[in-house]
Design a binder for these strands. Sequence first.
DNA 1: ACAATAACTTACCTAAAAGTAGTATAGTAA
DNA 2: TTACTATACTACTTTTAGGTAAGTTATTGT
Lengths: 103, 103
Amino acid sequence: MNTDNYCPLNYTMNLIGSKWKPLVLFHLLEGPLRSGMLQKKVPEISNKMFTQTVRELEKDGLIARKVFPVVPPKVEYTLTARGKSLESILKALDQWGLEDLKK
Amino acid sequence: MNTDNYCPLNYTMNLIGSKWKPLVLFHLLEGPLRSGMLQKKVPEISNKMFTQTVRELEKDGLIARKVFPVVPPKVEYTLTARGKSLESILKALDQWGLEDLKK
DNA sequence: ACAATAACTTACCTAAAAGTAGTATAGTAA
DNA sequence: TTACTATACTACTTTTAGGTAAGTTATTGT
């Protein structure tokens, strides 16, 4: 291990450096969403991967999960303060894609 | 497929949404590096993954590969204009990690 | 009584990612 | 002639990611 070259980007990537996490976070920027709606926003994701992704994001304190004790179940996801602090980055990534697509 | 919810972030993630790509790009921000040096900057990466990563980044036009016909081989990697356009995002990701680590 | 509902969870399987170790190259220095 | 260099490729194996399909829950509407 080369500690000389340690950089915080490593840490960031370990938290959100996967295919789905940024997408899920991005769609929560506009406000809380219930589980089904959030999943529909990321159409390519499978049910299993969605559950796995939100579980990890919750564990890392980037989103919060709120369960309403009703039937059928209602579960809502919200960005935490920590999650919200990624807002400008997520928007910049989206914007970059938009600009790059023009070329 | 839900085209209603298409967002450019998908596109961005397909280009740089992997564990290693942002790290490799980040270390090239300060200027060109030869292969061995660049690889040392990302100590956890395996030789194979490094080669694969730079190949893909090159294919996608984010970095340029320059081979010097000497022995032993010398290969240098540089950010292209397209790669450089990610600078603020890469620095923001690094900075975010730095801030987050304080908490 | 039974189907429908939303949000999972689990078991099982395949595909893709990643690690390991070995090989090639072609000069130069010993 | 042998070892060393930096870069990369390959075959092989392991690990992880991901997909599919089924089951679970408890209430409400038929």
